[in-house]
Design a protein around this nucleic acid. Structure first.
Length: 563
RNA sequence: GCGCCUGUAGCUCAGCCAGGAUAGAGCAACGGCCUCCGGAGCCGUGUGUCGGGCGUUCAAAUCGCCCCAGGCGCGCCA
């Protein structure tokens, strides 16, 4: 709605600029786009443009003069625009009519959950791959941040018309599986009284011992004297499956569901209908394109042809494929599935890898912008302002489950989404638990619960479902117009957050709306003796509630009617 | 050494991609507010070399270059 208004205004401005140019005898061929700002100060109007500044050169006049001339020739819809003012050095400030703002309420109430939805995605297929933690241990807080971001981003993209699939890449092959198997085997042997050393670089967490104990419970000591190489594989497969179960449970508790769990081992298996594995196919394709060469017994990919610093090995001289090779095959597989856009969410420590994978995607014949890689910075876990010590190596880490048990899903998700991905995040357990103003999630949820309560009370007082027929012209307070403006902005916030891959814009928006609502609530009453006014304010209440609820659902945070 | 991210109020951060009017929030601090729809709330008070420098521009937190500080990455590791 606001968008439509801005488009209309832009058109009117362009017409006026052309007229001014013709009258003034300066070139009118290049009429610039008209940029719109929301001025911070209400005396500067509701919308403001600096378009006059950009015309000074071609017009050879001052921006102030140009702005004045434009303002005089503007033909505007009087039902939407109250007046135009020229201010400062040549700003053109647009004041929107009160009746136009009031229409936003009806728009929200009529559209309901569809308010703020857009179609820019045009049904294009997007894949968001996130979390993808190795099945070698439970999810920790950092994974939680990735999970919250990926899920919220997927929701946002859905909201603007993309067809989204969520995927988890399971690294169930390669070295780390072997280390996992060895770690469990060592604990198994130790538990049964054998004096064996723990493997170097093994996974030391207590859960490893727990899994070994589980094996003993189920199978006893029958594996003690069997072939170790075989046992490592068996134990690894068992452990990965168990750990993955735990991961699924944790993600479920966190409210994240994936459409597909793609196993790395698939890349090394020959599908019945083909005569090559996906990995072999990928390499064969690159070879055919001339990007592969042999040197020192290894197979190299000429990634430098696509902006990488150096060429990379795909097949080691030992015959083993590198992790990079499997990732190339994986991305080939992804794009074959027909996604228009693939988004990978990785930990920030992988950023050296970005260029490489993009290079591979290009070599495979896909446009580089079809793959977007988002890097998430670390989560610093604090308790009462003091860092909580964590070391994955020593097996000491705070798991996502522990955090969820302590602070709950909603607080965790919301806080994870308050910062943009590439900024490190301090996550203070005490703050996340606090049921007070320190904690942004409660502040926002409370606004929703409060409005729900008001609407319940209203019903008791005889104001059934907020009426679209309410006389909104009774809404005259500045605070009411502030809220209406926030409602009007919602579609832009959704669209902007989705296209920029920045869900944190939505948490910020929610905090702003909640703040305005609380402030209004303390000062005025929704339900009063004046029944017409009550109807009008309740319509506003319902509209605000609807938008807060919708935004929370996109973030994956509950919108409680009572707290 | 090269590359990426970060540097904005005492603290945590928005704003930077698409440059515009006195740079915004929250927390912390202090002082107020429960005849009234939920006080998990509200109102008020103060805070800035936007890391530094140079440049582009009518206009720079925002764009470019250089420098400083912190983090991370640069494997035939994953």
């Amino acid at each position: 709605m606001l968008n439509r208004l801005k488009d209309d205004l832009s058109e009117a401005f362009k017409v006026a600029i052309r007229e001014v140019a013709e009258a003034g005898g300066w070139p009118s061929a290049e009429v610039p786009e008209v940029p719109w700002d929301y001025p911070s100060e209400s005396s500067f109007g509701d919308l403001s443009t600096t378009v006059a500044f950009s015309l000074t050169k071609q017009a050879r006049r001052s921006s102030r003069e140009i702005a004045g001339a434009i303002a005089q020739r503007l033909a505007l819809d009087p039902s939407a625009v109250e007046r135009i003012e020229v201010a400062g050095a040549g700003y053109l400030n647009v004041f929107i009519t009160k009746s136009w703002w009031r229409q936003v309420i009806g728009e929200v109430l009529r559209a309901g959950a569809l308010y703020g939805r857009a179609r820019v995605g045009e049904g294009k297929k997007v894949q968001v791959e996130f979390v993808s933690a190795n099945p070698t241990g439970p999810l920790h807080v950092g994974h939680g941040r990735g999970a919250a971001l990926g899920d919220a981003l997927a929701n946002l993209l859905q909201a603007v018309g993309f067809k989204v699939e969520r995927e988890y890449y399971v690294n169930d092959a390669g070295t780390q599986m072997e280390i996992l198997g060895r770690s469990i085997l060592a604990r198994y042997q130790q538990l049964l009284g054998c004096d064996v050393p723990f493997p170097e670089g093994g996974y030391q967490g207590d859960y490893i011992t727990g899994l070994a104990r589980e094996v003993i419970q189920r199978e006893g000591d029958q594996f003690l004297n069997q072939d170790e190489g075989k046992m490592v594989l068996t134990f690894a497969a068992f452990a990965a499956e168990e750990i993955l179960k735990g991961i699924r449970t944790d993600l479920d508790a966190f409210g994240v569901q994936f459409d597909r769990w793609f196993e790395e081992s698939t890349l090394y298996r020959r599908p019945p209908e083909r005569n090559q594995t996906l990995l072999e196919e990928a390499i064969a394709f690159l070879k055919e394109k001339g990007f592969i060469y042999e040197e020192e017994g290894a197979l190299w990919f000429r990634s430098t042809a696509f902006g990488d610093d150096k060429d990379r090995v795909l097949i080691r001289s030992s015959g083993e494929p590198t992790y990079y090779a499997s990732d190339i095959a994986y991305h080939m597989e992804k794009f074959r599935r027909g996604y228009d856009l693939v988004i990978d969410i990785w930990g920030h420590d992988h950023h050296g890898y970005v260029q490489r994978v993009k290079a591979a995607v290009q070599a495979l014949g896909y446009p580089p912008e079809a793959l977007q890689i988002l890097l998430i910075q670390l989560v610093n876990l604090l308790r009462g302002g003091r860092p909580v010590a964590m070391s994955t190596r020593a097996g000491e880490f705070v798991t996502l489950k522990e955090v969820l048990d302590e602070v709950g899903k909603d607080a965790a998700r919301f806080i994870f989404l308050t910062r943009r991905a590439e900024a490190p995040l301090d996550f203070d357990l005490e703050v996340a638990k606090a049921q007070s103003e320190e904690n942004p999630v409660y502040y926002v949820q409370y606004a929703y619960a409060r409005l729900s309560s008001v609407l319940r009370e209203a019903e008791k007082a005889g104001f059934q479902a907020p009426s679209l027929d309410a006389d909104l012209s009774l809404l005259k307070l500045p605070e009411e117009f502030s809220l209406m403006k926030q409602l009007a902005l919602y579609p832009e916030v959704i669209l902007g957050a989705a296209l920029a891959f920045e869900p944190h814009r939505l948490t910020a928006y929610l905090q702003e709306v909640a703040g305005q609502l609380h402030s209004y609530y303390r000062r005025y009453r929704f339900i009063s003796q004046d029944s017409n006014l009550s109807w009008a304010r309740l319509a506003l209440a319902e509209a605000v509630r609807s938008v807060i609820g919708d935004a929370l659902s996109i973030l994956g945070v509950a919108a409680p009617e009572r707290m």
